[in-house]
């Protein structure tokens, strides 16, 4: 694996904030790592892990409606926070 998925950082955050339900969103190139990521988080925390089954084009593409599922933490892989600016 050539990419650092920083699962330790994510797991630490889940433990610190006592998150109960999290959702991960992965770009297509990392979707084949879903099982490894979910299994490791479940093994090391008590959190329930959901997987966003949809597009992940960038930090501009955050799923909507997550509040309906009482998600405590949303984790997007493969992008960093971007600066919203109107007008492309």
């Amino acid at each position: 694996m050539n990419y650092d998925l920083e699962l330790d950082k994510l797991i630490q955050r889940i433990k610190e904030k006592k998150h109960k339900r999290i959702i991960i969103q992965l770009p297509d190139g990392l979707k084949n790592r879903t099982q490894d990521i979910v299994d490791e988080i479940k093994e090391k925390t008590d959190a329930e892990v959901l997987v966003w089954m949809g597009s992940c084009f960038g930090a501009c593409d955050i799923p909507l409606g997550l509040s309906q599922l009482n998600i405590d933490l949303f984790a997007q892989f493969g992008h960093n926070r971007f600066i919203r600016k109107e007008g492309w």
């Binding site: 990419y3 405590d72 933490l73 984790a75």
Partner: peptide, 9 residues
Amino acid sequence: MDTIFIDAK
């Protein structure tokens, strides 16, 4: 909802 971005460096 807490949010985290992981760059996957």
